[in-house]
Amino acid sequence: MSAGRRLALALALLGGALALVAAISLFVGSAALSPGAVVRALAGRAGAESVESIVTLQIRLPRVAAAALAGGALAVAGVAFQGLTRNPLAEPAVLGVSSGAAFGVVVAQIFGFGLSVLEALGVATFAFAGALLAAAAVYLVAVVPGGLSIQTLLLAGVIVGIFFTSAITVLISIVDFNRLGGVVHWLLGNLAPIPAASLALFAALSLLGFWLVLRHARELNLLALGEEAAVQLGVDAERLKRRIFVAAALLTGTVVAFTGPIGFVGLVVPHLLRGVLGQDNRLLVPTALLGGGIFLLAADTLARNLVSPAELSVGVITSFCGAPVFVYLLRTRYRVSL
């Protein structure tokens, strides 16, 4: 089967699965709504002020959309970082880039940015700047003549992550805690409902990052052979690396700005997809967008319902899935590639 056909088939299957998980997520939750009530609300046949309308349209629907977007963007960022660093273990949280973005968000909150669209754009800008800063720091710490070694890169990511997490703690301690009320909960990943206009901004920024990575998916394949080989095959490697770097930071910063630093999505989803589809980034990038959405949506549905009426942070679920995958990769793939 040609690559194009495989991609179409995979996208159709994943699209169906995403619709299914989204539907399930709309129908379950701590507010005990009957399926009929949810359908009525979705069809617009329930009163605007009715409980089913508010729960379904103003709480569950935006949350489903945010989860799908955040998961998709994080998985694409994972594929991008893996291609950029030629390291199957790279992803935004492991590399400390999420922590840098989170630092940016906390700084923005100190400046008093709120929830309006314009302010959300401000927060996203700070998060993007933080992500760029952290990614540049990791790169500078890890780079040696001849490339990036897997071990050094991971260590650099850990160090940079710790640094920014500490910086966040310092900020929280010295600034009036009430102004940063939700920060601690948010730091574990928070898919609280986002206003529709901000959600649109979230989608636009995520899709911009996705498009940048997708455009260069074929070149990312060549970069996997090493920078020298990529240049000899006609790729402008320096330009490619800059663009992927910016796109991955944009995706990470955007997700962190709107939902907090959710870890391991960028590791688990691309790894599963690689197992089925192989290493071709032209297949991985678009399927990661859908696959990441499915994964985070499922994780969030679990987080909302496992200990209902209380709620787990979605980051807890993704970490419980991601940590074993990380260890598995570290013990297997990591070894052969040494």
């Binding site: 394949n221 090493g226 290493q279």
Partner: peptide, 22 residues
Amino acid sequence: PQDAPRPFPFSVEQLVLMGRYP
């Protein structure tokens, strides 16, 4: 090239198709 490190296991056909990129 001489043998190079390969972190991602591409297939032979995928490798050869990369020669068509330019």
